[in-house]
Amino acid sequence: MKNPYRPILTTIQEITIENEAQDLKTFRLGFCDADEGNGFDYQCGQFAELTVFRVGECPIGIASSPMDEGILEFTVKRYPDGQVTNALHNCAVGDRIGVRGPLGNWFPLERMEGKNVLIVGGGFAFTTLRSTIRYILHEANRKRFANLVVLYGARNPGELLYKDELKAWQGRDDIEAHITVDKADDESWTGHEGFVPAVLEQVAPSPKDAIALVCGPPIMLKYTLPVLEKLGFGPTEIITSLEMRMKCGIGLCGRCNIGGKYVCIDGPVFTYEQLQALPAEM
C-alpha cells in the first residue's frame, strides 16, 4: 500500500528571485529518482505539498508546464509568519526538497480545446495560469486552442512575475498579452496602467466560444468576476482556483472545507457556478 504522506525527493536546481521586494522566488526542482520523476504526471492547475525536512510542509501550485519535461517549478511567496515559506526562501541550490503530489483537480483543458482562451491573473496568483499559458503555447498544443488572450497585473513593474516570459509573449503573434500595473513608478513602463478589472473592461475580450481562467487576490476576484459576467461570460465559462490551508492534501485532515467541499480534492479549481453555490467561508 502506497504511503500517501511520504514525499518524493528532489533537489533545487535553480532559484530565481522574481520581484523587487524579493519575497517571491521560483524554485526549479529536479527529481532525485528518474522513475519517480516520470511518475509525477501532472496537469495545469494542480498543486503539490512541498516539504522542507525538519520544518514542515505547505501547499503550492505548480508553475511549470506538463510539457517541461523532467523539471518542476514552484513560485513561493515568503510570509513573515510562514514557517515553511521562510525555510524555503532560505534554501540554496542543491538543497533537498520533498514533493508530494500532484494533488487536486486541474483546469479543464479538454473542455477548452478549440475555444478562445482568456486568462486573467493578478499578483502572485499567476503561477498555475503561467503553467497553463506555457502549456497552450507549446508547439505541440497551440493549434488545439483558438485565440489566447492574457491579462496580467501587479502592483508595480517590479512586482511582475516571469518578466522574461512576459516580454517574449508580447513579441509573439499567437498570444495577445496585456500587462498592467496598479501604478507605473517606472518611466520606461509601456504597458497598461490600472487595476485588472478596469483594464479588462477596456480590453473587452469576446465571450464567444470562450473560457476564462481567473486567479488573483480576493479583492481582484471580487471586482473582476462581475466584469466577466457583464462581458457575457457564463458561470460555467468562468473558472478560478481557490487557496486554503491544505495540510494533508488528500481529503483527510479536515482543514480546507468550504461547505461540503474539500479544496484539496474537489478543487482547487472551481467554476464560478460552483463558487456561487459554496457558503461564504473563504
Binding site: 525536512f53 483527510l252 479536515g254
Partner: peptide
C-alpha cells in the same frame, strides 16, 4: 472525529 495535523 478524525481531523489531524502533520508536524515535523
Amino acid at each position: 472525529c478524525y481531523c489531524f495535523d502533520l508536524i515535523d
